[in-house]
Structure formats: structure tokens, C-alpha cells
Simulated assay, not measured.
Amino acid sequence: MVKLTFVIPSSLDYHGGIEKTVSRYFFYNDPDFTKTVIQGKHGFEGKNIYEIKSLYSRLIIRTSGKINFIIRLMAPAILQLDRIININTIKKIEKDSQIIYLTNNDYYYLFKYNGFLIWSEHGNLPSNYTGVKLLNSVISALIRNNLLFRKIKAVHLINCYNMNVVPFKKKFCVPNGVDSALFYPAEKKHETIRLLFVGRLEKSKGIDKIFNVFKNHVLDMELTVIGSGTLEYLFASPLKNINYIKNPDDKKLAEIYRNSDVFIFPSTLENFGNVVLEALSSGLYTIVSNTTKPRFDEPEKMNFLEYINSTEDGILNALNNIKSKLEYTGKYENRKAMHNFISQNYSWNVVLKQFYEKVKEAYLS
């Protein structure tokens, strides 16, 4: 029995893609693993779930942009302080765990652990660790020569096109997943196009640009916004053609997807985008930022996805041309084909089995 610990900066009941994914990892029944979770903030409670008081978690969750980047540069010092504050819990985890899996790679500095440490693409890869191309190249070279991050034994990629980019010798690729039994298409026909955004309400997700497009232009469509974050105030007052729902449960969320026609997600900082899988599995025509290319090239080839510039002009242009796209994606048989593709390649039943097979293979090899 392999003892595996997941480390997340927030908690399992936080409404982000990382937390939903780790929750799936944790509750999946694999007879060869016992699992533990360390949460960086108060939240979900249960057996084998530990909570630490993490200053770094508070800072990284509440900030974005340049401030967030500065905090990440200070990660080694802040996380050493976190280690001191939570020393008993962390030492217990280090003693009891055969594998520690980091969803935020900065948490490397929290541990003095000589066991099997896995770095994941849920956080930043060395190829884009700092945001500065030259410095990233230097970091990659140091890793390749075993001069930096030497405690990392393997890397889990969620985007397989990065396999040749990551400088670590031991690496494996398993994408994120979706509950294809919950997110499925429905036969529908709406007189007015229904547009949907699901995600954190932060500038990096592009929700402010979508809001401005609807505020400054007359569009013959309805927008539903789902999520929470620092830009919630944009939707504090009722707005024409815009519906805001904060955090519906999964059943209600799936119903909202099914009752929509188009999903828009112009996020520029996305490691994968679980919500994109939910939309495609629900048979929605999907508009995403071109910064996510080539992640969703297959749905693009199937005429269900479009890459755009994440600007107000890029969003407006895509929406002005949406009716012609819906002539194809509006047909139920085409939506069903898209759902089947997602189910065969990204359903949790497929992904979770692959994940534990790959972790086991990396650990034992």
C-alpha cells in the first residue's frame, strides 16, 4: 500500500479547478493507495485531511498580477515561516508519506523531504516559472543538470504537448477530467442565444472584458455568469440581458450548461481549464483565449471550439459571428458526437485510472 499525500494551497471545497480535480483524486478508490490531503486554509473536514495555517496560501489566493508575482518570488522565505508555524503537522506528513504530490509547485519549499516528491502542471512548470524567457531557460538548464529542485522525483503534466519542454527525466501525462455522466447535451432550441461564463471573477479570466462588451454594445443574446471573486461587484446590480449566479451546486450547474448555447472563457492564465471540458461535454460551442492553443485543437477541428484574442474587440467579433457557428453545433446529433468524444478521452473513469497507473509506474520505476 503506497501512502500518497496531496498538497493544495486552499481547501477541497474551494470552487477552483485544482480543488475539484484533487477532490476526485482523493476520493477515487484505488486499492494500492492510501491518501491524505494537506489544505492551506480552513475548509473541508474529514478523515485523513489536515489543515495548516499558511500565510503563503492566504497571500497567493487573495492577490493577482504583479503583486502575486512578487509574493511568488518571496515563496522560499514565506514557506519556511509556514513550516515553522506548522512543524508538527508537516513532520508527521513527511514521516508517514511515501509520495508527496504538489499542486502548487512553490510548496516545494515547505518540505525537507527525501521521499518521492511529484511536481504537477497544476502549478507552474520550469519552462514558465518566472514569466521571463531567459531566466526560465537558465532554470531549465539548472534542473537538467540536477543543480536545482533536486528533490523532485517526477512531474505530472496535464498537457501532453509539454512532454518535450519539461527538463525533468521522469515525467508522465494525464489530463484533467470531467463528469461526462453529469455534463451532457440536451435537445433544445432557443429564440435568443444563451451565452455562459463559468469561472473565478478575476481579470485574468477575462470576465471584465465580457462585461464591458455587454455594457457598451447591443447584443441579441443573454449572458449567464457563474462564479465568485474580486469582480463580483460588477454584477451587484441587475443588468439587462445578464444573469448572475454565485456558486450553484453541481447538479444545478450542469442544468445551466445544458440550457445554454455558447460557452465563453477568454482566460489568459489557464493551465488546463476544467470548465472548457464541462462545456464541450454539454455540447456547447466554446470560445477560448488563443493562449490556450494547442490544448483544444481536436474540438476546434470538430467545429465546436474557437480560439480568439482575449480583447474586447476579439470577444465582440466572435459574438457577432456566432449565429453561423450555431447552425452546426445547434444540431443535437453533432452535440452528442462532441459529448462522446469528451467522454471517451476525458471522463473521470478514464482519467483517474490512468492517473494512479502513471503515479505507481513512476514511483516503482
Rank of each mutant, 00 (worst) to 15 (best):
residue 320 N to K: 03
residue 13 D to H: 09
residue 304 F to L: 02
residue 160 C to V: 08
residue 44 F to W: 05
residue 82 D to W: 01
residue 230 T to R: 10
residue 345 N to Q: 12
residue 353 K to S: 08
residue 118 I to M: 03
residue 358 K to E: 09
residue 343 S to G: 12
residue 88 N to A: 11
residue 287 I to Y: 01
residue 139 I to K: 05
residue 221 M to L: 13
residue 254 A to V: 04
residue 99 I to S: 08
residue 24 R to P: 02
residue 25 Y to F: 10
residue 65 G to L: 06
residue 275 V to N: 00
residue 91 K to Q: 14
residue 206 G to I: 07
residue 37 V to Y: 00
residue 267 S to A: 07
residue 100 I to D: 01
residue 101 Y to G: 00
residue 54 S to I: 00
residue 280 L to C: 09
residue 336 K to M: 02
residue 152 I to Q: 11
residue 243 N to G: 15
residue 247 N to C: 11
residue 186 A to L: 15
residue 256 I to S: 02
residue 251 K to E: 01
residue 313 D to M: 13
residue 127 S to Y: 12
residue 137 S to T: 12
residue 118 I to P: 07
residue 313 D to L: 13
residue 308 I to H: 04
residue 1 M to P: 15
residue 235 F to P: 03
residue 101 Y to E: 02
residue 95 K to S: 11
residue 360 K to V: 06
residue 94 E to T: 06
residue 1 M to V: 09
residue 181 A to P: 07
residue 331 K to V: 06
residue 42 H to K: 13
residue 67 I to P: 07
residue 63 T to P: 09
residue 251 K to D: 01
residue 351 V to E: 05
residue 338 M to H: 04
residue 343 S to I: 04
residue 95 K to C: 10
residue 77 A to Y: 05
residue 307 Y to I: 02
residue 293 K to S: 13
residue 340 N to C: 11
residue 33 F to G: 01
residue 208 D to M: 04
residue 357 E to H: 10
residue 119 W to L: 03
residue 206 G to K: 01
residue 56 Y to H: 00
residue 106 D to N: 13
residue 12 L to I: 06
residue 313 D to F: 10
residue 54 S to Y: 01
residue 348 W to L: 11
residue 161 Y to M: 01
residue 288 V to I: 04
residue 172 F to W: 10
residue 214 F to H: 02
residue 224 T to W: 07
residue 119 W to F: 07
residue 172 F to T: 04
residue 56 Y to S: 08
residue 94 E to C: 04
residue 122 H to I: 09
residue 155 V to E: 02
residue 272 F to W: 06
residue 220 D to K: 11
residue 270 E to Y: 00
residue 346 Y to M: 08
residue 314 G to A: 02
residue 69 F to S: 12
residue 77 A to P: 12
residue 151 K to R: 15
residue 18 I to Y: 06
residue 215 K to H: 05
residue 92 K to L: 06
residue 311 T to V: 14
residue 46 G to Q: 13
residue 190 H to A: 11
residue 190 H to I: 10
residue 259 N to A: 14
residue 246 K to M: 09
residue 188 K to F: 14
residue 319 L to D: 01
residue 67 I to C: 07
residue 276 V to A: 07
residue 84 I to K: 11
residue 356 Y to R: 03
residue 191 E to P: 14
residue 182 L to F: 03
residue 222 E to K: 06
residue 222 E to N: 14
residue 158 I to Y: 11
residue 267 S to C: 03
residue 111 F to D: 12
residue 277 L to C: 01
residue 252 K to S: 05
residue 145 N to G: 14
residue 224 T to S: 08
residue 95 K to Y: 11
residue 289 S to W: 08
residue 202 E to Y: 15
residue 139 I to Q: 05
residue 307 Y to A: 03
residue 305 L to E: 00
residue 4 L to Q: 01
residue 85 I to D: 00
residue 232 E to S: 15
residue 270 E to I: 02
residue 199 G to A: 03
residue 349 N to E: 10
residue 104 N to M: 09
residue 259 N to V: 11
residue 250 D to P: 13
residue 256 I to T: 03
residue 344 Q to F: 09
residue 186 A to F: 14
